[in-house]
Design a protein around this nucleic acid. Structure first.
Lengths: 211, 211
DNA sequence: TATAAAATACCTAAAAATCAGTAGAAAAAA
DNA sequence: TTTTTTCTACTGATTTTTAGGTATTTTATA
């Protein structure tokens, strides 16, 4: 644990949010706000020249978005801890920020306590979410709710091969089937997923995590 | 917080693991192991008849796999807290267990301390990972590492429409372009992603989270 | 063992996609 | 203001997919 205060940066395109966070963090004894930035580029430029221990990040930003920014920050400075503070409630966004290196995700209406708690958890190397975010993550997604088609073994197999970009002929050769049979399975898949072609099929299947 | 001990179930197809966990948890004052199960079906049957507060789950199971089992458990008993204890180190698997309702994911070589800590975090409603798992989550995935193609604005736009299952003609109509132009973009996309057709394209693009 | 579900295979014809190029205009970057 | 990139559009030939179906054989399941 560093004896110094945490050199903390705020990245948000709303000056009011920046000011508000500054006020809130003022009282934290182990935090020192070293800057507020309205977009990713100016922050990255700062990061190249200065040490930053902690950054509170918004997702919606002019130019580079917060998700991509996470990756770039980690690329520049692996030790900088990222907490995302956003209003986005889509699970995919939350997941991706974490995959891109963030140590936590809070909604902007989180309490100061939650923020404080997440900072301390993140410092310990943990990943931390605010309560509402945990609800979002745990709640089944729309894609999963909408009845997913029941696939047979063969269909799953052929679906996987289609996803690899193989033609009916390729697949037929591989599975020792007639290409016409493969066509039939392909047709049934397209029907089951209620899509128009293989492109839509692959898309629907990945969304339902069948690939 | 319940004054009773946590009614805890273990689901793993290795009897040795079950026994080991029983031994470890024996000393925990707030935990009472109510059963060990070798597969998902027998556990679900038990869950229908008995209250279970906590379940430690393996991913690799005969029959229903652990990821799907998470959903079924939550479906049956929303209050049952699920911790996954597995050897799988693929990020997609970790992510999906969480999306399916698990409150934490630990590798089997985790320390008892970590397990104890995760249990208490999970009880508080938090999501908790063991150290190695956090590393896996934060580490950029293979898919993301391998040079992702640089797409132009038009290409991204057409890629998205292709993913919806639209034909070149559809897209051309929508964007007021010649279908031949759309064909060119499509061709360039296929080249950039080094795939053979649109199916492979959609697959590659989703893997690199471009869709 | 009936019965249902899955897997196999075929037909015809139209629609769409892919390959392998070229090339001018517009926009963005140096 | 060059230079480069992106966007646009085309030719022509070939391959593949898609949309209607039908129909027999296996394999599970009741």
């Amino acid at each position: 644990m560093p004896t110094d205060k945490l050199r903390t940066a705020l990245v948000d395109d709303h000056p009011i949010v920046i000011e508000g966070l500054k006020m809130l963090l003022q009282n934290e004894e182990n935090v020192k706000v070293v800057g507020g930035f309205g977009n990713g580029d100016t922050f990255l430029a700062y990061l190249k020249q200065n040490r930053v221990d902690l950054v509170l990040l918004d997702i919606t930003l002019p130019g580079i978005n917060g998700m991509d920014l996470c990756k770039m920050i980690k690329n520049e400075s692996l030790t900088t801890i990222i907490l995302v503070l956003s209003n986005h409630t889509e699970r995919s966004i939350i997941m991706q920020t974490i995959q891109n290196g963030a140590s936590g995700y809070l909604l902007k209406n989180s309490s100061v306590d939650e923020l404080r708690n997440c900072i301390s958890e993140a410092l310990k190397g943990n990943i931390c979410f605010s309560k509402e975010v945990i609800d979002i993550i745990s709640r089944p997604s729309k894609n999963q709710l909408q009845g997913r088609p029941q696939l047979t073994r063969r269909e799953k197999q052929i679906l996987a091969l289609l996803a690899e970009g193989k033609t009916s002929q390729n697949i037929a050769d591989e599975l020792f089937l007639s290409p016409l049979t493969v066509d039939t399975h392909r047709k049934n898949l397209i029907q089951k997923f209620e899509v128009k072609n293989v492109a839509g099929l692959i898309m629907a299947a990945t969304q339902q995590q069948l690939l």
